[in-house]
Simulated assay, not measured.
Amino acid sequence: MIVTNKVDPSPQQMTAFFGAPEDGPFIMVNLLKFKDKADYADGSDANLSGREAYMRYGAAVQKCIADVGARSISSGLVTGLMLGEVEELWDMVALVEYPSLEAMKNMVMSPEYQAIAVHRKAGLAGQLNIKTKSTGG
């Protein structure tokens, strides 16, 4: 299995993800890896860690999430690995439940989200976003 963290999806990934048939609510699993130091394009806030920059995004994105009828389920720092092997652990895991693909698309395309995404980019070294569907159990 090859695992490659990315900060942004490619245009092809965006089209495939948001072009999939609508199938209602889902939970997005976010596996996050932070930069050691924040890297803002304008050079500002060079004293922040990547985690601190991402936490700015994390605090601000809560309103964007709520505005589209989604909700944060949980987030936490990764503290260990019980089973399996990876070269390097992610730093944080966050779970967000969206009512639909359309809701998530509306959120990421909104001007409010675009304005705070600078903190996400400054703080993230990469991540995996995994869409999950409840199996009813």
Rank of each mutant, 00 (worst) to 15 (best):
P21A: 09
P21Q: 10
E22W: 11
E22M: 08
E22D: 14
D23K: 02
D23W: 07
G24Q: 05
G24N: 09
P25F: 01
P25V: 06
F26K: 02
F26R: 03
I27K: 10
I27T: 15
M28N: 07
M28E: 13
V29I: 14
N30R: 00
L31V: 04
L31T: 04
L31F: 11
L32E: 06
K33T: 05
K33L: 04
F34D: 07
F34R: 04
F34V: 11
K35L: 15
K35R: 15
D36A: 12
K37C: 09
K37W: 14
K37Y: 14
D39P: 00
D39F: 06
Y40W: 13
Y40L: 08
Y40E: 10
A41D: 15
A41T: 07
A41C: 03
D42C: 07
D42I: 07
G43M: 07
G43S: 04
D45H: 11
A46N: 12
A46M: 13
N47K: 01
L48M: 12
L48E: 03
L48V: 04
L48P: 00
S49Q: 13
S49D: 14
G50F: 04
R51K: 09
E52T: 05
E52H: 06
E52K: 02
A53R: 03
A53S: 09
A53N: 06
M55N: 05
M55R: 05
R56E: 08
R56D: 06
Y57G: 00
G58W: 04
G58Q: 05
A59T: 11
Q62T: 03
Q62I: 05
Q62S: 03
K63A: 11
K63M: 03
K63Y: 04
C64E: 03
C64G: 03
C64S: 09
C64T: 05
I65H: 00
I65M: 01
I65E: 00
I65F: 00
I65R: 00
V68A: 02
V68C: 02
V68D: 09
G69K: 01
R71G: 06
S72I: 13
S72Y: 08
S74K: 09
S75I: 00
S75M: 01
S75H: 08
G76H: 10
G76V: 11
G76C: 12
G76T: 09
V78Q: 15
V78F: 14
V78C: 15
G80V: 10
G80E: 13
G80K: 05
L81I: 10
L83Y: 15
G84S: 13
G84Q: 11
E85T: 14
V86Y: 12
V86L: 13
E87A: 14
E87I: 07
E87H: 12
E88P: 00
L89N: 07
L89T: 14
L89P: 08
W90A: 11
D91A: 14
A94H: 03
A94E: 09
V96K: 00
E97I: 04
Y98N: 01
Y98H: 14
S100I: 03
S100R: 00
L101D: 05
L101M: 13
E102F: 10
A103H: 08
A103G: 08
A103Q: 12
A103L: 11
M104A: 07
M104F: 10
K105H: 15
